[in-house]
Design a protein around this nucleic acid. Structure first.
Lengths: 237, 237
DNA sequence: ACCGCACTACGTACGGTGTACGTAACTACG
DNA sequence: CGTAGTTACGTACACCGTACGTAGTGCGGT
């Protein structure tokens, strides 16, 4: 019988190999790597059960022995790239450490632009997510206060990073499989926005775009956002 | 010929009625309302072109006269519920006003739990989104500083609200169309998490869960997050 | 007034998706 | 050594977005 999907389960609680039967031809790492490769090169929508099975070189339904539901495949992918986080010995300066974490996460998402889309629905605590969380908590040891507040800080920081990178990548990812370019798409949207602003119905929006019509420095915006969030949690300030 | 989809476009730039031909049987508002109704009652995944057409009482392909791509249907939905924002005369206290905005957005998302999933991909400035933005900027008039910073505040607040509500609703929405309950799903995940923590590999995570094993007061967490973000932008503090 | 064309309406069809189910081969445990 | 549980995988189903073709409709320009 194929993998049990008809009951709630966590993929990580399933043993990767379980005694009986022929030894599995692929490891979870193999499968995750294949899926990540496809997503990186062809976008997240190209990651279908059939496509991943083909990439591995096995039949479609064989994949269901390893991954009972597609959702689990997504968890595998998220965990695999979470493993790319390089963790370090906490420096003692929690602000510096958290900034470094945030930048690393941002880099990760730029390397794997599909990751933000997987972050929101995924609720689980995968092995590498746990390692990452534990590392963040270790970095926050110097910060006084209850553990709960630290978790809130981590969640907030992750949320901010995800939100900002999503914005950075939105158009780029959207136009991936479309027959027109990101520039064309942007041009059309900006033209529409300007036509709306030109009606005079939105004076403050107009003022905003008059103020700085050039392209926004997203890097600087990101940096400011981080600083402000950390400030909100900093007892020194 | 069916609606042109083979070039970049913004649905809002398309005139709803354009002289020639029979008068359209449905308005954009009708279509959006039908889609929103389906999403509210059966979840976002139930919103297919066929399903919406059926709800309207027309053939599937007729819908493409109004909505060239499914993505545009999503924009219609997001705009329709954005119209539920009730805007008020700014009070002069920008912090109070922004708190009120944030709570209203949160309520909106609780009323339409599929909204967060639509927020990230949607890049556009729909009519009601523009009204909402303009209102937020008006509320921020008393705040000194460049318009750009105000936009950053609005973006940040929206990001935070979306992130937090996503977390609140994650399991609920995930288990919508699944044959088991939210409680069962949660129980399985918590059991797994505890088994991982019991290994002792994650001492700080363990400490966190020892600290407060009861259910978290999500409302209070949300409130604290808002306060901290506003603090980060408040020159008075 | 009338012609033509842009529009509405919609059935059919194509290529894709996730995955339930059945069958055959294989291996470790009782 | 049997047998239960596993792997492997082909077939099939229901559903998706949507390209395309055809028929009917009513406004705009002449």
């Amino acid at each position: 019988m194929a993998g049990r999907a008809a009951e709630p389960h966590v993929i990580w609680a399933r043993p990767e190999r379980s005694g009986r039967g022929p030894r599995p031809a692929y490891s979870r790492a193999d499968i995750a790597a294949a899926a990540v490769r496809i997503a990186d090169e062809e976008g997240l929508d190209a990651v279908s059960m059939r496509r991943v099975a083909a990439e591995l070189g096995c039949g479609t339904m064989s994949l269901y022995n390893y991954v009972p539901r597609k959702e689990d495949l997504h968890e595998l992918m998220a965990d695999a790239v979470a493993g790319e986080h390089e963790l370090w010995e906490p420096s003692g300066d929690w602000r510096a450490d958290m900034l470094r974490v945030a930048h690393q996460t941002r880099d990760l998402m730029h390397r794997h632009p599909w990751l933000p889309r997987l972050m929101s629905p995924v609720y689980g605590f995968s092995p590498n997510a746990l390692r990452y969380l534990e590392h963040c908590l270790a970095c926050l040891d110097p910060l006084p206060g209850p553990q709960g507040a630290k978790m809130e800080l981590i969640a907030m920081l992750n949320g901010i990073v995800t939100t900002y990178v999503s914005n950075e990548l939105a158009t780029a990812e959207r136009t991936r499989s479309l027959p027109w370019s990101q520039e064309q798409e942007n041009a059309v949207r900006i033209a529409y926005l300007q036509s709306r602003i030109a009606t005079g119905e939105y004076p403050r929006m107009a003022a905003t775009f008059m103020e700085d019509p050039g392209p926004i420095d997203l890097e600087a915006v990101f940096e400011r956002a981080l600083t402000r969030v950390l400030d909100g949690f900093d007892p020194q300030r």
